[in-house]
Write a protein that binds this DNA or RNA. Structure first.
Length: 742
DNA sequence: AGCACGCCGACT
DNA sequence: GTCGGCGTGCTC
């Protein structure tokens, strides 16, 4: 007789039980129990019934046969969304390499806290006299735990249960008899949270142009015919993708289904939010990283209860527990923020595809500069591609782009950061009272400080990077935050001639003020937007015309509409082009295209000046011509030649350790161990090599790259590495191995 | 989380 | 000796 066992996670959130337990599946439940099921199981000494999630099914349990208990039953009441998310967690674990717990925490972030709405409180039932008496008694008998509690009650008759357990180290073994004796009572206090307050304004429905209408019509037709697939909308900046999204959302919620809209956090501005509120009112909810765990829980709860139909948010909104999901939209699909930086290192696009297929939902991706991955799939016919080539606003045209060759400028003796053309155009716009945006892909005052005598750069003692000068008085490490005051003289040779190199936003601002003394400038970078709402504040000030020139990093090129901006200057396009990353050209193209899209959003024509030392590079010429297909073809030649994604799958294995020697030994051992398999399967192996920043926070890192066209083979190799490292604690106890697929 | 076990001081 | 509080460890 065959037996089946289920691997189950107990529905209690506590570190100690944060793992799987095996249970026998009774034959009568063979049909019903599958990965993702929510089941009832007897747990612990008292066999108390608890909920558990089935995360795996095996024919053999690796636990003492006699001690294994049986699943008591299955929980059926309306848990579809939850069990679906559990199976999604399982998929995440398999696909990206993490533990089931890490995957579950990603998918059910609110499971961390048990019912945050309810807060348990201990109330003292003794009067002052009796309390004093009880305390003396417990002191005399040296009942330490009780004594601590009584003492605390003297100050306050109400003590949160959590504090009693965690800080006062009281256990239920102590509390239970005290409750029975009537000394204390346990109460749960309801805490009501205010829902987000937003007024609903009536936004007039915009008439779609023909290109937009084509998308809506096709989607609606497919949707009504129960055809679910992935669509890629490639729309130039300002082509009105949001209007299309709203129509698609409308189609789906009219059908009684729910919608998730993913937006990069940085683009989740007040303006955007208000547009959706205006159209869909209180059926919309928003999550962002500033919400507290409780507020977040509430929003997910509202989704679960069916109080809302639309969830808008960053990556994590993907796990909104909608039971009847009909559509997932990913705006700015190419954004790096859609890739998780922590284990499991999932990509929202891939997870969205999986979730959509699990729940029978459609997926719509939108971008002005699609990722090579998405565009490749669209060309292969896996996605349905739509184009939006016109700007939605009447009379608004794409900007004229001019590329300024900085090598030439230098030859002609121009040592400022502004090329002739840019300077002339800036003067012209200031004259006309039109606005200018200056874009630089760096923050801080300068890249690094170095000595002109000995050439030594000042470096972070914990990380393998140079320190960055801030406000001309302190040096900050951008990796670990280590800060020292700007030294008077060179720490290595003592020479007083030390100075900053490179250019940052602060320096640009200073130089701009020098060159255009009458212009009012605003600066926007990580430093000026650190405080809450700083972001919004600066953008609002600029859009209300409080400044003539906005200087900033990446963040100024996202989203916002500034009708009065007619000139955009990209000061050094090369900065992102020569980073040690195979995506450098793609990212540069995207940034330049987005930046160019900021100019001339209204009737007034716009100009863009791209300053560069590599005017002939295809990422720059293609961006200047707003020519995505040419860029795509060129870049794909490079990716195919180098076997980089999306031509191949790239598995990055990162080894990290505080001990440099152990690190090298373990990385080499792994490489040697997998070499028979990599040779047989023709997997291209690079490394192990030191990471581009070898040391961060005193932890050394080495990288091993594996390339192959077949995902499954790389997964097999990953599993081999996992097995190997588990069997060699001598090498891997102090080494952390992390995987990343791209 | 919640139960049981074993340790240890207090009381008879 | 016994009783009972307290801290810890385990739960398939």
């Amino acid at each position: 007789m065959t037996e089946r066992y289920a691997r189950i996670i107990i529905d209690i959130s506590h570190e100690k039980v944060d793992r799987t337990f095996d249970y026998r599946i009774p034959e009568r439940l063979f049909e019903e129990v599958s990965v993702g099921s929510l089941v009832l199981i007897p747990f612990g000494k008292g066999n108390a019934m608890r909920k558990g999630y089935v995360v795996g099914i095996t024919p053999h349990a690796d636990y003492d046969r006699d001690k294994i208990k049986e699943i008591a039953g299955i929980v059926t009441d309306s848990v579809t969304a939850e069990s679906l998310l559990i199976s999604l967690a399982w998929w995440l674990k398999e696909q990206y390499g993490s533990t089931m717990n890490q995957a579950l925490k990603t998918v059910l972030p609110v499971k961390q806290k048990i019912k945050p709405k309810e807060k348990k409180v201990l109330r003292c039932l003794l009067q002052r006299e009796a309390l004093l008496e009880a305390w003396k008694e417990s002191e005399r008998k040296s009942y330490k735990a009780r004594s601590r509690l009584f003492l605390a009650f003297m100050d306050n008759p109400l003590i949160p249960y959590e504090i009693a357990v965690n800080q006062m180290n009281l256990s239920s073994a102590t509390l239970k008899p005290m409750i029975e004796k009537g000394f204390v009572s346990m109460e749960s206090e309801e805490i009501y949270r205010n829902p987000i307050k937003m007024k609903q304004s009536q936004v007039p429905r915009v008439l779609l142009n023909q290109e937009q209408q084509v998308i809506v019509d096709r989607f609606s037709k497919d949707y009504s015919e129960d055809l679910r697939q992935t669509y890629l909308i490639h729309g130039v900046t300002g082509s009105g993708k949001t209007e299309v999204y709203m129509e698609l959302i409308d189609t789906v919620i009219q059908d009684g289904k729910q919608v998730i809209l993913l937006i990069p956090e940085i683009a989740l501005t007040y303006q955007t939010v208000m547009r959706f509120y205006g159209r869909f009112g209180s059926r919309v909810s928003i999550i962002n990283s500033r919400l507290s765990a409780g507020e977040r829980y509430d929003q997910f709860e509202r989704a679960r209860n069916g109080d809302i139909d639309i969830m808008i948010g960053p990556r994590s909104a993907l796990f909104t527990p909608f039971a009847k999901l009909g559509l997932i939209l990913i705006d700015e699909e190419h954004e790096g923020a859609y890739k998780s930086e922590v284990v499991p290192r999932y990509h929202a696009r891939e997870v969205a595809e999986k979730r959509a297929s699990l729940q029978g939902a459609s997926l719509v991706l939108g971008s002005a500069t699609p990722s090579l991955e998405a565009y490749t799939k669209a060309l292969r016919g896996e996605y349905l591609l739509f184009l939006l080539t016109e700007r939605a606003k009447k009379d608004s045209r794409l900007a004229n782009v001019l590329v300024a060759d900085l090598r030439q400028e230098l030859k002609e003796g121009n040592k400022t950061i502004f090329s002739k053309n840019l300077k002339a155009m800036m003067e012209d716009r200031l004259e006309k009272k039109e606005q200018i945006m200056l874009f630089i892909n760096r923050r801080g005052y300068a890249n690094f400080v170095s000595c002109r005598s000995c050439g030594e750069a000042i470096r972070c003692p914990h990380c393998d990077v140079t320190l960055t000068l801030h406000n001309n008085k302190s040096l900050v490490c951008h990796y670990c935050g280590h800060t020292i005051p700007m030294p008077e003289k060179c720490p290595s040779c003592g020479s007083p001639y030390i100075a900053n190199f490179g250019v940052g936003t602060q320096k640009i601002e200073q130089m701009t003020k020098k060159m255009f003394p009458s212009a009012r400038t605003l600066r926007m970078d990580l430093d000026t937007t650190k405080k809450k709402g700083g972001h919004e504040e600066i953008l609002t000030a600029f859009s209300e015309g409080e400044a003539d020139i906005l200087i900033g990093t990446q963040m100024i090129v996202k989203g916002h509409d500034f009708p009065n901006v007619t000139l955009v200057g990209v000061l050094a396009a090369d900065l992102s082009l020569y980073t040690p990353d195979y995506r450098a050209a793609e990212r540069t193209f995207q940034l330049l295209t987005q930046a160019a899209g900021r100019a001339g959003r209204d009737q007034k024509p716009g100009d863009v000046v791209i300053q560069t030392y590599s005017p002939e590079h295809y990422a720059i010429t293609a961006a200047a011509n707003q020519d995505y297909p040419t860029f795509y073809n060129q870049e794909m030649v490079f990716r195919r030649m180098m076997k980089y994604p999306p031509a191949n799958v790239l598995l990055t294995v990162q080894f990290s350790s505080r001990n440099e020697k152990t690190l090298a030994a373990s990385a080499d051992a792994v490489t040697a161990y997998i070499s028979p398999m990599t040779e047989e399967e023709m997997v291209q192996t690079i490394g192990p090599a030191e990471a581009s920043v070898y040391k961060i926070n005193d932890i050394y890192r080495k990288i091993l790259y594996l390339k192959h066209e077949n995902y499954d083979i790389l997964i097999k190799i990953r599993d081999q590495i996992d097995g190997f490292s588990e069997n060699r604690p001598d090498l891997f106890d102090l080494v952390l191995i992390q995987y990343d697929f791209s």
